[in-house]
Design a protein around this nucleic acid. Sequence first.
DNA 1: CCGCGTCGTCGATACGTATCGACGGACACA
DNA 2: TGTGTCCGTCGATACGTATCGACGACGCGG
Lengths: 340, 340
Amino acid sequence: MAAFTSKDVARIAGVSQSTVSYVMTGKRPISERTRQRVLDAMEQLTYEPHSGARSLAGRRTRVVGLVVRFGIGGDAFGLLPFIETIANSARAHDHEVLLVTADEGSAGLRRLAGRALCDAIIMMDIEEQDDRVPVAAALSVPVVLIGVPADPAGLHCVDLDFEAAARMAVDELADTGHDEIVVVGYPAPAMERGLNYVGRVLRSARRQAQVRGLPLTVTEPVDGREADAADQLLARRTGGRLGVVVPHSDAIVPLLNALRKRDVVPGRDISLIGLSSDREAEQSDPPYTNVSQEPRDVSRRAMETLFWLLDPGSGVERPVIDLVAPRLTRRTTVMPTPSN
Amino acid sequence: MAAFTSKDVARIAGVSQSTVSYVMTGKRPISERTRQRVLDAMEQLTYEPHSGARSLAGRRTRVVGLVVRFGIGGDAFGLLPFIETIANSARAHDHEVLLVTADEGSAGLRRLAGRALCDAIIMMDIEEQDDRVPVAAALSVPVVLIGVPADPAGLHCVDLDFEAAARMAVDELADTGHDEIVVVGYPAPAMERGLNYVGRVLRSARRQAQVRGLPLTVTEPVDGREADAADQLLARRTGGRLGVVVPHSDAIVPLLNALRKRDVVPGRDISLIGLSSDREAEQSDPPYTNVSQEPRDVSRRAMETLFWLLDPGSGVERPVIDLVAPRLTRRTTVMPTPSN
DNA sequence: CCGCGTCGTCGATACGTATCGACGGACACA
DNA sequence: TGTGTCCGTCGATACGTATCGACGACGCGG
């Protein structure tokens, strides 16, 4: 455990230190015999290269900076799959993940780049107008955004295609003969902070409802007062076929519970489509029809883009705005088209 | 943005590079006049020290390694407050947080130490018999465990006092005149993996029930089949006063819902005490009586211990096993003592 | 007026790796 | 057999900071 250096490896293998280095990087041809001797020596010493020295000499840290927001507002819950996927992907490329919380604002970004703490940054929870975006764009390291701000300033963005998701939900309700649509608003903090997808969902839903000739209203957010929300919905249901879209996944299950408590059966008396991961939709009681929002897809693509930026030679060019297509899965909570 | 070095700062301030270094570390006296000139120069260049060079020359990275488990099993949900607290604490000490997922096993630990990626490690989700613990104990960097394994191998541990928590829950039910106690089991993955607190809770509850002369049984885990679990509980309720302890916070709300669906009112027909954060207990419907499991307290103490290990001079000595005392908060779900 | 200790600063060096230029040998071709 | 090319390896240097030894200036006591 006494911390060996590449010089130690070199000595044991009977070669020079630079040869050891070239074995590791593969940047110059090395004979198979020598290569093997070096690898054996590394094994024997359980050698690990000193990351600081590496970053100093090689100008690359093999670290990815991850900027996330922990405070409530975004679905704090849905954060974990993102982080997990990012961590795994980084690992697969022999990179580490450095965590920076978003409440440091752009100071965190400057630290990451200025101190040469990482080679690239991935930033989540982007707001529609986000102070950090211009700062990020001016950094000396590549930055990938998860989310699409109003002005990406040339940065690569990856996100679910929220516009398409809203459109699909509206279409599904229109296709199944509903005559009114209600979209449940996002929680107040998300609205205020102008989280980028809030606007995108609401605008797109409104537009598509207009296209389909359906009246659409957006309610107050639920925010834990599911009972009121349910009552509001029911008051609205004046005999017609009412379809509800719940874009904020945390609100779906409470709302279903509140409806059940009022003996309103989703799929019979009212229709509900949620925006959530498929897993949540399946495991709910009842399982609800959803438009998928798969964090893993999004973050996987983001990491692909990030590593492509770090090594543009590899793989095909990546789109600057990369939207993951959502998928609608029908379960039990949408009323079937009347047969009349 | 062109990445300045301490030499640039030195030149502008009209001093030598070493003087700049001493201004930063404070390890030698510097006249106020010089100090100010150096600080001004830093400001002017927006200088940030190169972390790699720092780690190479100074043998300290100012990075804390955080080993967490993402896969299901532990309350994946409760993870965020831990991570957030740890990140904030690190930041307060001008340290970064490097994320390592636990499924790398002890290889991740060896990397952290071998590559000199961090100065200290904090490891979560400790199992009762955990392969990583002996490895961690042999590392050249200090390690703090969140959780208490069967054999800590000399490592510092911080955790909620699960034994006390279980005892408090049992005592509360005993004090309010219940005549039978049921503990809902942990989910199968947690049981199998031997998560350290599983055993501690169950053993302690059993012991205390014996002390109080109450029959206690542990049921199958809920695991998403809340309906069955609820039925099991009700079948058991043969006229007596039944108290239920739910140690796994994810199971509490589903169970409450299942009970409600069966028109069983917690606090009137049956009693329920959960192990969870106060926030979850308050916001539930109905708010349930709980024994607090505050992640923030635990991780804050863990970080205090960690920084103390990094600089033993500072602050008072820390206990090797540091258990955070739980607190019972009475809400609506425990039947009051019969007045007879 | 001299010797001594302290304060503040400088110069030089070490840290461990990546990379550049150089060099000797093998090989192909004429 | 001579010449040129490519392959495989070595030595030396740079990367940016921390730290150690030295050294001049200064104050103080004798």
